[in-house]
Each structure stands twice: as C-alpha cells, then as structure tokens.
Design a protein around this nucleic acid. Structure first.
Lengths: 255, 255
DNA sequence: CGCCGACTTGACACCAATCAAGATAAGTGG
DNA sequence: CCACTTATCTTGATTGGTGTCAAGTCGGCG
C-alpha cells in the first residue's frame, strides 16, 4: 500500500529464521537453520523485501483480501483490530523475527502498521501454501509460530484481566528491556519508539492514565524520563516486584 | 488425574471433527470428513475416551509434563492460567469440538478443568506427532485450530481491553446464545453451567461485580434471572446494542 | 433441622476515564 | 532566523465505576 521502496530479492538474501522456545514467557530464541537449506532457498525464491521509511504507515488493513504474509527483519510493527464502534485495540507489537499477516478465510483479520522505520520480507500466500504441502518442516514451523503467538495473546489476556495500570506498564517496560535493540544495558536507557496513544491502546487504558503511570513510576524512583521516548531504568527489581503484587481478589480454588 | 471412568476405544468411535471458518468472529462450523478416512482411522487408533462425571475436576495442570492432547465430545472445560501471585485468569471455555492441551516445550502452559460433566477424547502427543509427519492434512488441520484459538484469544483481548463490565457480560451471554446446547430458542432460556467465580475470572472482574452486572441487565429489562444458573433472555437486540456502545475514548487514528 | 456453600446486596474508598488546559517540541512558511 | 501552526505529551479537577469488606439470603444436603 504505502511501501516507500520495494525491490525484488535484495542483495542481502532474507534470512528466514525459525524459532524454538526456552520457556513459556520467554521470547523464542532465533535458531537459524531449523529449516533445511532447500526450504530456505524455496522461501527466498518467493520473498520480496519491503522498506517503510517511517512510522504510521499501513501495511495492510483488516478486511482486505489477504495475498501476503510478512516477516520482520528490522523495526517495529503494531498489530491492531478495531471494534465495531471504531475503538482500536493494539494486539501486539511485532519486532525483528516475528511473522504476521496470516489470513483467515482469505482476508486479514487485523491491521498492521509501522511504528518505526521497518524492513520486512513479504511472501505471497498462495505460493507459500504450495511450498508447505511438500515441505513438512515449513508447515511445522508455521504451527510453532502461531502457537507462540497464541501464548503471547494469552499472556496479554492475563495482563488485561488482572493487572493494575502500573503493573501493566511495568510489564511492558520489562518486555522491552529484553530486546537489545531498544535497551542499552550499559547506560540503562530504554528507547521506546512507541507514542503514548499506542501505549495506551495496547495496555487497554487511556492516554492520560499511561502518562500518569509513568509519572508514578518516576515518583517511586523506578524510572526516570529523559525525553518522551527515552526512559532511564533505575530499578529493574522494583519493576519486577511491582508486577508480582496482587491486585484482584480472585476465586482461590482450594485444591 | 481424576478420570472417573476411562475406556479404551469406546464402542462409539470418536468423531474427529475438522473446522473451517465462516467469519472472523463466528464459531467455526464443524465439517466432518475434512480429514480423509485414513486419517480418521489413524486418529481413532490412538484415541482414548475419558469421562468426567462432574465439574471441578482437573484434567491437567500448568507445568505438568504434557503427554496428551484432548478434544471435547461433550461438556464444558475451562482453560486457565495462574499468575505468579496465584491469581487465576480463565482464558477460555472450551465446548464440544474444541481441542486443547497442546504442549509447549514438553509441558502444559495452562490448566484444564471440567466445568460440567465432560466426555473427551485423549490422544498421546508423541503418537500424534508421528502421524502428523506423514499426514499433511492433519498437520494443516492442527494449524487451523490453533489459528482459530489465536483469533479467539485476540477477541478476548479486545473485550478485556476496552469493554465495560456490562458489555463484557453481554458479550459472554451472546457467545453462549449461539450454542444450542445451552440456549433453548423456544423458551428463550439460557442455562449457564458456569458459577459466578468462573464468570468473574473469565471476564476479568470481581465476583460481586459480575453479580451486579447481571442485576443491572435485569433492571434494564434485558434478561431475567430464573435461578443461579438459568437466565431468561428478554431482549437480544438490547444486548447487541449494549456491546456496541462506546466505552473508552481511544486514539482515533484519522485515516 | 441446622450447617454450609454459593449467590446476592449494601456501603465505602479508591482508582481511572473524562474534560479542560497548559507545556514542549517539531514542522511550516515568511 | 523567527512567528506561527500543529501534534504530542503532561498535569489538574471532577465524576463515575469497580474492588473490597461486610452482612444477608437462598438452596442443597447430611
């Protein structure tokens, strides 16, 4: 739709990465070569490299006919869905190595938009389907990825269902702390390339509430705002402790 | 763990059902014979029928070594996960035709418990894996199911992220209205085999809040409580209108 | 009949959505 | 380079909604 530049089969052949899982909540480690060379070759054949130069660009919208699946090489993409009344919920932020755009009944069910500059690989869906039929490993790999997304979604359900605003924010910060592309461990600074609107729509809170939550963490000495998109992390342990604190009295199933 | 009775390969051979999707939010229609007879046979060979006579029994718990995958023939199962602090969140209610228990890294990530009396089919995971390798259709079927679960989870995220308590309840009621096993269209009565604790933990609210939400719907003339688990539906249109009403001012992306 | 669990209702404090306004930064055109 | 607009972020005041504690009701079961 809005690709600023696109080129067929870039000089740097797309790395098709596979994943396995360390732990339930861990980001999957990226393992090259879980796919056989032959499978990688076949993927490269049908891949196109897309580059989006800035954030806020639409990759595809929910309801559109789905012809492609995408994998991120670099940058951040937000996956969102709109309720019937027009409210937007951000379902996930996708980063390097993630796969998105798997269609349902021929259409996209979600909207994908760039958050920052992004480079991604695009695969024609019908060609991918053909390859999958005679490359069982690829089929399995796809299942693994979807299963991972499912667990991530379930994690998000946990957060939205039982965490307070501050806990939700702590969760998000800790999530991004694990990504070296955003967090510099040496100086302890986190560059969050996400504006407050997106943050709020992801955490299921109002924009002002998100700001106030950050302000509260700052008052408590856990973080310090450098500028709008940079946060100095002062107390990781404090953040971890925050999300463990209980919030809602739930039905303690006595077993 | 607590199976009251179990029998190998019951006289009524388990029907292994496949699914396709009408629309995004629709429950998938159950299509027999998307699997070839050979594939169905192979599944029957490894299936065991389990019966649980009442609700509140544990099928498996999160963290346990995963050896089986389950499919529901009849009854309701709740899939839940516990936060580090012990809080329980119900991720989904599974009904007839649903599949659950797919392991992650050799363990279950969720807990499955019966809500009512349940009959289900159990498949040894490692045998299932072997079959999948040479039955591509089965592999695909599994992917479709997981993808469906993912979309359901995303739907739950939408509800928890932006709906008010009353809207959440309306959503749940409308969900169950589509299932003939719970809703009798003739007399307009819904039998909800779910206690208030489970209801609250599913909707991400407190038990008392759930009760109050029901009371409010009753005051507004949308439903009427017959007894604790039976609800007379008076105004379906009103319930639908309720969940469309806007709740949170979100970032209206002007596009 | 009396206990017990699940459900229900009331009172109250607190958190978060909303409305409103100000602050900061970035882009735009003169 | 500077006025101006615009977008984004931030803070304050207010109000409604929801969690929590507490008490009361209902129905089942021994």
């Amino acid at each position: 739709m809005n690709p600023v530049r696109r080129q067929r089969l870039a000089r740097t052949a797309p790395e098709i990465r596979a994943r396995t899982f360390d732990r339930v909540t861990d980001r999957p480690s990226q393992i090259e070569n879980l796919l056989s060379p032959k499978e990688q070759d076949r993927l490269r054949e049908i891949a196109t490299v897309l580059e989006y130069r800035r954030g806020g660009l639409t990759i595809f919208s929910e309801g559109e006919d789905a012809h492609f699946v995408y994998a991120i090489d670099e940058g951040v993409v937000r996956i969102s869905r709109h309720a019937e009344n027009g409210q937007r919920q951000i379902l996930a932020f996708m980063v390097s190595g993630d796969l998105f755009g798997i269609p349902d009944g021929g259409s996209y069910v979600n909207t994908a938009e760039t958050v920052s500059a992004v480079r991604l690989y695009r695969f024609p869906w019908h060609q991918l389907c053909r390859i999958r039929l005679d490359e069982p490993q690829l089929q399995l790999n796809m299942l693994i990825r979807v299963a991972y997304d499912l667990r991530q979604a379930q994690r998000q359900i946990m957060i939205l269902g039982q965490q307070s605003t501050n806990q939700r924010l702590a969760f998000l910060l800790l999530d991004f702390l694990r990504l070296p592309e955003f967090y510099d461990e040496r100086d302890g600074r986190l560059r969050l390339p996400i504006n407050r609107f997106d943050l709020a729509d992801y955490l299921g809170i109002a924009r002002e509430t998100a700001v106030r939550a950050i302000a509260k963490l700052e008052r408590d000495g856990l973080v310090k705002r450098i500028d709008a998109e940079t946060i100095q992390i002062l107390d990781i342990g404090g953040l971890r402790a925050l999300q463990l604190g209980k919030r809602r009295r739930t039905a303690a199933a006595a077993e």
